[in-house]
Write a protein that binds this DNA or RNA. Structure first.
Lengths: 331, 331
DNA sequence: CTGAAAGCGCTTACAG
DNA sequence: CTGAAAGCGCTTACAG
């Protein structure tokens, strides 16, 4: 049988209250008593039952993480595992636990959010992506439940919403600026998942900087972040013979572009992607990519949420730095 | 404030005991009372606090899943996300929750296991991989804590251990047999993670069937399941000029082989991999691969564990079917 | 068929 | 500095 606070109390010759206070290192307990109780704790191998504790403290020290339903078709993208890694590191550092829910579609994501809240099982929720008119965000805000999003929410009155994000607009603007300085006169952009704000922002940055630099452009949107989508988009995009460079919203799309370029024999096109995905084949030429620091995004999201839960947070958001990693030949 | 069982009781004019019995659909409660109570439940939107329930039932309906520390360097392998998907599906079907722990090394995996148990937070544990002389398995068995492993444990007295696995030995034997029938006289095998039983079994099947078929062979072991490791291994392996076919323990290794073959210009080598990984580049020739049905492995693991927890299980293991998917040109 | 009571393992005012 | 008591939100023998 599991050893409880009563067992420790009996062993140390004190009351359960005292043991509880020793556990929380209450300053009003005498040093000698503390020592004795700690010895009993060690001797008996006592670890408090966190469920019982939660029942009185009204905190479970568990955070619910909702994976976007696209995660499984996007498994080839390291973003999710990296973010999860960051999430778990932060949770561990702060003595929180993480509970994941995988949705099948947007509806079941909302269901997962509701379940988390209704069961009283989590103190807060983390959403791994932000959609336009996001139902989960709306529900969480409405119910005033603590949450954080990876990606900046696009709704009104978002000052009290916690979020982390890269500066995607700026990251793309930098790329376009760089390309313009190199002499590119006409650029292409391939995006996907139009209702993800991250996609919207990358496109926004692209358009803005093209206009600012007086660079011509055309844009193709695809359904998913896949090689096939990138290939299809490239095919369409390069009907425009003047395009000499291309910015993809994700490396998987860039792979498709590479593939198209190799097959079509077209040379001298400069490619930029996002999120440095390992190319198993690695036969194509290197291309430049923006490292969005997925692990840091996960870590900071949970840090922010936990600060909020413990009422110690100052800012409601955090911008995680990106790093443009140029292709080998550029170095 | 959250609505509790007392609120419902008051609203329906019954005692909390009765509400509790209605929740569990106890047969001794009158139909009329049930109806009235259910209306109150609905009206007030009551959902039981599962922590309070757990405290008395001694069950949390949470299963802890320990990710192998290699998971993050292996993120390019869909196995983990697929398995997690299967795990979450089974959990949802059975009204269980899942809690994941990511270890940094083998030691911290054991730490995670201990923490799960000590906190009283999980009813059972699922391990995503099995190592030789696996510390987590030893600890769990020693403490008689319910668990299931993906991969067959290799310890004595494993009859009471729950596990799911593919028949890796058989899968590789089939491949080798097929290759022998096609006329291959000498084969190569590339493995990695020698202390994972899955690797050991694939190698075992390879050796067995080569001997059975009278086919010559050589074997190279690498550290990790990566393209680089596959490339390095291929370089070494093909010093043996007679090798005409190669079985890789994972598709990532096979990509490395492809790369080597393309660079070295060597032709007519038949490649087999495992676990059909999407090749972002997809420039190389197609190769055949064994689909190990990762999602099913995850699903069945949790099914097995939950059956055990509810004392309804019969068998202590389950073999998940594999499917050999031949390269396009073979069809 | 239903309720009052005890208890799950903790924490925390309150009292001394 | 420490303990007895009440309570967190449930469930479940026990009694009627």
């Amino acid at each position: 049988m599991k050893v409880t606070i009563k067992d420790v109390a009996r062993d140390a010759g004190v009351s359960p209250s005292t043991v509880s206070r020793v556990m929380s290192d209450n300053s009003r307990i005498g040093a000698a008593t503390k020592k004795r109780v700690r010895e009993s704790i060690k001797k008996l191998g006592y670890t408090p039952n966190i469920l019982a504790r939660s029942l009185v403290s009204k905190e479970t020290k568990i955070i619910g993480v909702v994976m976007p339903h696209e995660a499984d078709s996007l498994f080839s993208n390291p973003f999710f595992i990296q973010a999860m890694k960051g999430i778990s590191i932060s949770a561990e550092n702060n003595e929180y636990h993480i509970m994941y829910a995988f949705g099948k579609d947007e509806k079941s994501e909302l269901k997962a959010v509701k379940k988390f809240i209704d069961c009283n099982i989590v103190d807060g929720i983390c959403l791994l992506t932000v959609r336009k008119r996001d139902k989960c965000i709306a529900y969480l805000k409405e119910n005033n439940f603590p949450f954080v999003t990876i990606g900046r929410p696009e709704i009104r009155n978002s000052e009290d919403i916690l979020w982390v994000d890269n500066d995607n607009v700026e990251a793309v603007r930098n790329i376009v600026k760089k390309m313009s300085e190199k002499g590119h006169k006409r650029l292409g952009h391939i995006g996907a998942k139009e209702n993800w704000t991250v996609s919207a922002n990358r496109k926004k940055g692209f358009v803005k900087e093209c206009l600012a630099q007086g660079v011509g452009f055309s844009i193709v949107y695809e359904e998913d972040f896949t090689v096939e989508d990138g290939y299809r988009a490239a095919k369409q995009l390069f009907e425009d013979r003047d395009i000499t460079g291309i910015v993809c919203a994700d490396d998987t799309l860039a792979f498709g572009v590479q593939k198209y370029l190799m097959e079509s024999g077209r040379k001298g096109i400069e490619i930029f992607g996002f999120n440095r995905v390992e190319n198993h084949g690695n036969y194509g030429p290197e291309f430049s990519s923006v490292n969005i620091n997925s692990m840091e995004l996960g870590r900071e999201a949970i840090n922010l949420l936990i600060s909020k839960l413990n009422l110690t947070n100052k800012s409601n958001y955090k911008i995680v730095e990106t790093k443009l990693e140029m292709a080998e030949e550029e170095k």
